[in-house]
Design a protein around this nucleic acid. Structure first.
Lengths: 232, 232
DNA sequence: CGGACAATTGATGAGGGTCAATTCGAGTGG
DNA sequence: CCACTCGAATTGACCCTCATCAATTGTCCG
């Protein structure tokens, strides 16, 4: 979902407004007609679907540099909500501005399209995670993915990164309960694989974490997947 | 993922080759460099990710009319395999031909992009299904979705449709085992909600099925979601 | 210091997985 | 027309993972 430096530079000239938003605020409600999309500058955001009983399933999380809801540009209305997880700085790009960019630089259309397809590839990895991994595997997979994405954004050194989420957030990402997430985190801690404390993730044994999560970073289409080892 | 009549017509002029494929054949392997994409003319196809232990998670199924792997056009290589579930007729469209279409009719770029975003929206519905529904709900949700998609393709009357899948296929879609899918199907049958026999789905109580699956068809972005009731 | 929220832990039970056997159905060959 | 075969469907027995419910402990902050 991250764009490369050139693309982001071009987009930055089209920013309509920069805004700061408190933590845990809904930024976009599903089914609303949208005329603008959101670049995440700083902080973490989520996209989620609620069920009838107040349970929530996250379908994406976003890190700085992501074009959070670029898919709203062709879709016009979203099938899910978008919210901040932490306090965040976001930049608004009007769809008219995107029209202009594409008009002037037609190849940008392809780049933006590509970016929404990375988002979809991440959805597929999440489907694999939820459908075929057990609780430990799901958490491990998510931590590997987040490490890789944050590394690519310059926000992880490959082993340590800030992850300002609660265990309940992790549960809503991984299709678990917060109680069970807590138990899994303890397991990972006691196995000296990974420690998550005070919003900081420290990976102690990345090979083990990759193995537990059956993590293969290909789907992120990164230039340099360095911290994640495997790749074929 | 279905395109509208006009778009499909235009694409049909760009078909390079029409091919028939036996059931259960891999059509595209992940990580292969692709120069063409696949329109599904007849039959059912799947996209899936295998884990290390031979377990499989489907990430999409496709019905006639779908542009199965249009995302390979911008992505160039896929993060998953594509295979037939039944014997199928497919049409190959070379990416060069798509280049030409877009060059001549720039607005088609947006249409094609849109179509890949519907695919992504379906991914999100599947994430919700796997993360937050129990076994009965997952099956119910899948049956509602498939009914809606086939209805839109003219292959369901809104209550009955051919679904040439095994219970093991359903298991790989819903993150369950084939044994448990069998039990759920019995439950639905005994509750007079839905019968699945000899590759034929008959929905007896669609309101109940929609309720069990917490199904809301908005994410399919259909013009006429008729058979699926809710919608806001 | 008190309040609110997050993390942690224990006890209990249900939903599905696993394993193994049996039945059913459609297609094949005699 | 019937025996045979192979994959799919079905069912039973058993058990494990994870959800649920309920306290208790930390931690941050006004």
């Amino acid at each position: 979902m991250s764009l490369d430096a050139n693309e982001r530079l071009l987009l930055e000239t089209s920013i309509d407004e920069v805004r700061t938003v408190d933590a845990r605020r809904i930024v976009i409600r599903s089914r609303t007609r949208l005329q603008e999309s959101t670049l995440l500058v700083e902080g973490f955001m989520s996209r989620y679907i609620d069920d009838r009983n107040g349970m929530r399933q996250l379908v994406a999380i976003h890190v700085p540099g992501d074009f959070v809801d670029l898919h709203a540009y062709p879709l016009q209305t979203l099938d899910h909500d978008v919210a901040t997880m932490t306090s965040a700085t976001i930049a608004i790009v009007r769809h008219e501005a995107l029209d202009a960019i594409i008009h002037e630089q037609p190849q940008m259309s392809r780049k933006l399209w590509f970016s929404t397809l990375i988002d979809a590839a991440i959805h597929r990895a999440w489907l694999f995670r939820l459908g075929r991994l057990d609780a430990v595997g799901r958490i491990a997979h998510f931590l590997c993915e987040t490490n890789a994405r944050l590394f690519s954004a310059g926000l992880s050194d490959g082993r340590r990164f800030a992850l300002p989420l609660t265990q309940t957030d992790l549960a809503e990402i991984c299709g678990l309960t917060n109680v069970h997430v807590n138990r899994v985190m303890r397991q990972l801690r006691e196995a000296k694989v990974c420690v998550f404390r005070s919003s900081l993730v420290e990976i102690l044994d990345i090979e083990q974490l990759v193995k537990l999560g059956q993590f293969d970073p290909d789907y992120l289409y990164l230039e340099d997947p360095d911290p994640v080892l495997p790749s074929h």
